[in-house]
Structure formats: C-alpha cells, structure tokens
Design a protein around this nucleic acid. Sequence first.
DNA 1: ATGAAAGCGCTAACAA
DNA 2: TTGTTAGCGCTTTCAT
Lengths: 353, 353
Amino acid sequence: VASDHKLPSIRTVASLARVSTATVSNVLNARRSVAPELAARVQSAVEELGYIADLGASRLRSRKSAIAGALVPDIGNPFFGAFLATLESAARREGFDLLIVSSGGDPGQETARLRALLTWRPAGVIVIPCDDSFPAYEVASAAGVPVVAADRMPGDTPVDLVSVDNCEVARRVTEHLLAGGRRRILAVASHLAIANMRERCDGIRDAVAAMGGSALVEVLEAGLTFGEMRAHIAARLAAQPCPDAVFALNNVGTLAAVDALAAAGLSMPRDIALAGFDDDIWMHVVSPPITAVCQPVEEIAMAAWTRLMARIGGDESPPRQVRLACTVALRGSSGAAPGHPAFRQPADSLAVC
Amino acid sequence: VASDHKLPSIRTVASLARVSTATVSNVLNARRSVAPELAARVQSAVEELGYIADLGASRLRSRKSAIAGALVPDIGNPFFGAFLATLESAARREGFDLLIVSSGGDPGQETARLRALLTWRPAGVIVIPCDDSFPAYEVASAAGVPVVAADRMPGDTPVDLVSVDNCEVARRVTEHLLAGGRRRILAVASHLAIANMRERCDGIRDAVAAMGGSALVEVLEAGLTFGEMRAHIAARLAAQPCPDAVFALNNVGTLAAVDALAAAGLSMPRDIALAGFDDDIWMHVVSPPITAVCQPVEEIAMAAWTRLMARIGGDESPPRQVRLACTVALRGSSGAAPGHPAFRQPADSLAVC
DNA sequence: ATGAAAGCGCTAACAA
DNA sequence: TTGTTAGCGCTTTCAT
C-alpha cells in the first residue's frame, strides 16, 4: 500500500523556480496575477520535475473538491455503463473526476458504498437508487453533500431526480400491442420495489383500462439477473393460458424474454408479440427485430450532472423532478399476428414517440 | 464547488469521547491497543456524530493510499464495463476504491486522463492502453505508481500485462471456418495499431498458411465505432469477390457484421459464415446463433488486480506477462454451407476450447 | 496505554 | 506583486 517513491511537491517546484510556494500555486491555478518571468520559471520547473499537483491536499486546504461520486446498481449493465460514460465526459468537461461505485442492487450495500464514496469528500454524488428505501439519501444529506437521483423515483424523498416518463411510454406501447389484437399481456418486471417498474406497470394498466375491459395484464417479478429472469419467464410461458404479448420492463428482461420465447418455440409476432425496454443495437439485427423503448440515457446523465453542478454551486431551490420523454422503436416483434385486421408486412424500425 | 457544511472531524470525535485524536485514530484503524472503555466511548461518539473519516487527509499524512485508478478506452463498451465491474468488486474486497477514467481510444487523452488520475495519488493503476504507444506507462512510472496493463500488449514496454491467447484462439476459429469449406476470409479489425488485433490476424494467417494455400485472408481496418465498422463492412461486402466468411475481431465489429450481412441480404451460414470476438447473451438468442470467442473477462480483471496488489505491496520482480485461455462457442452462424461435406444440422452453442 | 505536537502538500490570509 | 505563516484532518513520533 505504500510507495517509497517521493514525488516532487509544490515546495520542490518553488525552490527550483526560486519563488514561494504561494506563487507556484497562483501560477498553476491562475488565481492571482504573477509576473510573466516568474510564471515562466514556474512552468519550466513544473515541466522539468514532471510535477503533478496533489488534489487531495489541495482539497483539504481549500475545501473545494474536484471529485464527484456516482453510485449505480451495476457498472457492467450496458444501460448504467452508457449512463456512466456520459457522466464521466460531462464531469471531465467541468474539471471533475468521477469516483464510481456499485451497490449490486442491494440497499445495504447502497449505504456502505456511499459511505466509502464520502470518505473521499466528493463535491456531490449522483445515485441510481436500488429501490424506494434510498438509504443513500439520508447518509449523503447528513454529510451535507448534494445528491441527485436518476432513473428511479425514490419513494417520496424530496430529492432532485431525473428520470423518464415511464407510465406514459408504457401506455403507448401497450396501446400498440392492444391495437395488434393482443389481449393477454405479460409484464416482466425486475422487482416492484423499484419505482420505475411500478410506473411502467401503471402505464400498461392505464392502456388496458382505457380500452374497456377485455384485455388482461399479468405482472411477473422476475428478479435482477438474466438467469433468474429467463427462468421465471420460461416457467410462466409453460403455464396456461399462455400470454399473447410480453412486455419486458428493462434491458435484461428483454434479452431474457427473447431467449425464453425461442426456447418455448413461440414465434414472434405470429404466436406472441414482444416489446421491451432499453433499445440496443442487437435488437434491430435480430429477426424479427425487437420493438423497444429508447430511454434517452445520455440526456438523463447530462441533466443529472447539470443539476448536480447547480447544487454544488450553491443552488438552494426546492428539489426538482424532471421527466424526460422516451421514444419507441416499433419493429417486427410486436406487430399484429397474421390474420388480424391490423396485420401488415413488417416495416423495420418505424420510430414513434 | 464549495460546501459550507462543516463535517465532524477527528477532533470533534475526540473531544466528545474525551480522548485524544491519536486514540480515536488508533481505535478506528485498530492500530495500537486501546482500553475497552475508551474504545467504546470513541465508537459511540462516532455513531452519534455520524463521523466519516477523511481518507484524503489520512493518505496525506500516512502516505498510504486506498484508492486505485482504472483507465479504459470506453466505460460504455460492455466488454470494458464487465472488466470494470469485476475490478471494482475485487478492489472493494481489499478496501480500495476505484477511480475510473476513459481515454476514448485516443493516446493523447490517455496521457491527459492518467495525469488526472495521478492527481489523486492512487496506490496503483490498471490501464487498457489505446495502442502500442502506451504513453500512460511513462507518466505513471515516472511518478513511481505501479501500472498493470490489460487486454492489449503495449508494444515491447516492459510492463505487467494480463491478456488472452489471441493468436491461438483466432487460429482455432479460423481452422473451423476452413473446415467448413470457407476460403475467402474477411477479418474485421478495429485498428491494427492495437496489438490484440494484430495477434488475432496473425492467428488467422497461421491457420490459413498451415492449410497450404488455397484460402485467402483479407484484413479490414474498420474503425472504433459501430457506425464506422458497419459502413466499412457493408462497403466491402458490396465489392467482388465477396468473402465467404467474416471473422470480427472485437465485440462492436461482431454486431456491425451481423447488421451488415443482414443488410446485404446474405444468409448465414448458407451464403457466408460469421464468427466474432466477445461472446454476449444476444448472440445465442439470434437466429442463427453467432459463433463467438469468449474472453474470460472476469479472470483478466482478477489477474490484473492481483498483480497490481503485489506491486503495491512492494513486489519488485521483473514484469510478468500472463496470457489467459479463451474458449469458443461454436454456433450456427459459422457452420458449413448446405451442400458442403462438413455440413450438418446446427447444434446450438457447442463450446470447444 | 494515552496524550501532545509535528507535519504530510497545499492554499488563504496577512505582511511587506 | 510576492513572500511568510498558519492550518485543513489526519497519523505518527515522542513523551509520559
């Protein structure tokens, strides 16, 4: 854990440049004006020594942190990966580095990992909560660190939030399924403790209710991993009556559904329709291509970052909850079955919003 | 950037527990033995105040860092995402947090982002280099920070490295393609400046050479993004003579190839065979399922972490370069064309290694 | 076993 | 404009 190597400090630079440490600091941070000649001497000393400032020490003294924290359920999930990638480039543009930790979807870990984040005294944190309990919020606000939540509405916690219009978009997709003649819809959620899952289910039920009755919705809590979800879906497909449409409410569920449908020998869209959340490239290279909800993940990340920067900058206004709009890529997997009046030849990737 | 909130410091804890700051430190770090009564007082003061130690300050004084850096080309790429997820959990198990930055595949950024990492004084860094130039190595070793490279052999830099047997596995896959009667192989690389791409091409050529001549290999440098790669592949497929096998050498290329083949109206494995690097779940839910090389990404990450921990612990032995074995999931996309003597009904996901 | 005091690298206040 | 000094929160001597 120790390195005996001794890096040059600001004092090394100062003495080589024959100025005070304060002057070095002022040159490097462009804070007070410094005579060009001294500045040049400092710069060349920095080059010569390969000096790299210690931002930990800087933060300690100045009480200004150039690090932000990000807490997500799983770094390896492509949805969160895309979120983090956008967040990182946004952070870099403003001179922040990003300390990333993952909770594994476990609220206990959420607290533990947030505490670990806070030991580095980030200027703020962006959190995708595990579920409504959102224990990270208490910890961070007790520490006076600004928090912005993303993707999931954490219960009724009064926190800044950026998420999407889950209910609305799920309703639109469901209307599309109903228009194609589907009447027994299986909604595949991860866990209903996650707010966006509940909102998506609500949208499905809204569409069915608005239609006036003959359709049924069944919600399956299928778990967090691919294996769990596939097993739950497969078990349900083996039971009677078989649904005539599957709507998977997250990216893992969509993949699991495709796999389970194929394993059950059900063909889309003839035997069953499929729609899923979180568009990904593979969904339009398969045959039939998969109808999917496109969440604007880059925009979510950008909006969360912008909000966090405002809070870090001292914004004390009431928490704001933003909902961004999703689009839907209608593709072959969710078309009407042949023989249904709404049937038509599949047109690839006709985006609707 | 500033927070006016004042967190409890070790002094706050000390005075509430009526002990010295040294005792608090000793209790929290279990360093020297402390009377049980004092320890209890410290613990309850910590609880009461919600004290969270400042590891930046701790590192400053103790010169021991509990943070490690990770530098990858792209956080959003699922391959690197899986790598980082494993790395993070390995790090956490040893009490380290992970500062993650991405270079975007640009060597200039590689240097810049590594410098940013070093401002936090990590105990060590794990780097997936952009290409052979590996500028990060110079910077980090000049700073005396241990570096472990992963995934890509950076030229002849004498650095610890964990990667896979690229040449060997590419050779095996190619032999399989040749056995299926394929004779015009298109190898789709990102850039040949990346060592693992060259090694994979070498393996392909080895197999072709060993076979004795009638087969051809053509290497396409298709770029880093999905869009670029798809466009390059599509352009090549439109030209004559059309390859009868495509071997995509990374995950993005595989996706791009599937898309380009479909767009060109080529059917697998009848018109053309496809094999790709980096197995992913979608590859076996599509039809036909895609033959893929499975890199042991978790093992790569674990091995890299283990090596870094050894270096951080003071291991001064010569750099070690480890090659892990890949497996191949043989699936329908790469079977022999109907009519060829090697043709047989597709069996799904028959793993060979 | 415990406490007092020094100092890690840096910046902010104050002096010149 | 520049330098001097103090001190951020912590750990580590060194004293007791």
